[in-house]
Design a protein around this nucleic acid. Sequence first.
RNA 1: GUGGGUGUAGCUCAGUCGGUAGAGCACUUGGUUGUGGUCCAAGGGGCCGCGGGUUCGAGUCCCGUCACUCACCCCA
Length: 428
Amino acid sequence: MSAKFSAPKGTYDLLPPRSEDFRRVAEALSAPARRAGYGYAQTPTFEDTALFERGVGESTDVVSKEMYTFLDKGGRSLTLRPEGTAGIVRAIVEHGLLGGQLPVKLWYTGPNFRYERPQSGRYRQHVQVGVEAVGVDDPDLDAEVVVLADTGYRSLGLSAYTLQLTSLGCAACRPAYRVLLVAFLEGLDLDADTRRRAAINPLRVLDDKRPEVAAQLAGAPLPPDHLCAACTAHFADVRAALDLLGTAYELAPRLVRGLDYYTRTTFEFVHHGLGAQASIGGGGRYDGLIEAIGGPPTPGVGFGLGVDRTMLAAAVEGLVVSPRQRVEVYGVPLGEAAKRRLLVLVDELRRAGVAADLAYGTRRLKGAMKAADRSGARLALVLGDRELEEGAVQVKDLSSGDQTSLALDDAVASLVGRLAETSMEETR
RNA sequence: GUGGGUGUAGCUCAGUCGGUAGAGCACUUGGUUGUGGUCCAAGGGGCCGCGGGUUCGAGUCCCGUCACUCACCCCA
């Protein structure tokens, strides 16, 4: 059975039961934002290519060599979004949300696309959950965003990760620091490729992991040591707020991000069980972004959390996030007449809010009972000619094996009651 | 984009010195009339990633290619 087609390179299919885990993870990562007053936003999967060139930055790898860009039939250059912030911010500006109450707080989820060399934890299509808080420059808001992400991870039971935090400075202090760094880098013995990178975006050389490069960078000037007074104060306030909120972090003065728009607060959540692709989420402040894409000068802060990588991290930590139960009730019909009746009963149960299924096809009793067992149902409904004559249905508790008879007429009501009772006992 | 490793059943894998393929799990059926999970038995399912080459003969050796994977890079 050789498949004619397979999922494109760098993509993968999500099927039950893993797909259920995925939904749970996305749900858990976004829940804290919903509880913090963030509204749901959905923007297009593709945007004007220029939006990403101007927003994310043409010097970044993401824009310069990883975008899925194409011309549509109208000759427009469009790009599958490589990240979420640019589109959300564009929508905020386009719809005049900055004229309303600030900050504008939005959360979103969806796929991002980057043409990268695939490896585990790195895909050409990956899903992020993100938040953006725009329009207010308040270090407490930076802390809120960070804590929201941390809360999401914790709610899944994740613990083998650290929060890395730094400040990259602002338009006032970064240029001077940049000059300092460039001068330092010029004195080093670097390969041509790294030199090129240093010329385009010197900051990115700081977190090079190659030992021969890293060793030379030991004495490099680092951003947090060259902040202006305002940035220093801002960074101190962010840390104080995180301390107040009890969120642990590690100072990571060499942390840089691949997207040009970050200013001041910058952070990354690094998981310890994932190998090279260890970043399960990251973000920071982007006070110049909105102006860069044609809006008024406006501060903003946000994050993107990798749902795919968070799934991998949960697997590494042995966390089963979803119960394997598909339905609560499973119908086992014996004969055609019984099947007609069960078809209706199961439909009524579903309408009453009970997850229910039944044995389709031509399975014998034994096979149908087996299917009931595999479905994860708590109750099996056995209906045959004998029961039909009595106007009853056999209800079997699949964990205890106890079986009782129930009047067919009010079976739905009694089953709903019975399931509510047992689930209450379980939550006690 | 650069380097290394691996591709055999749906999944995890075995397959000797080259002689046209196996296990466990999963699935289906059966173990006398209408009861699942454990057990026993049977069955279905594979162009050995794909294409070339060497050979009387290739899952096995060689080359290419594609995919996956690990590191660099990049980042979620």
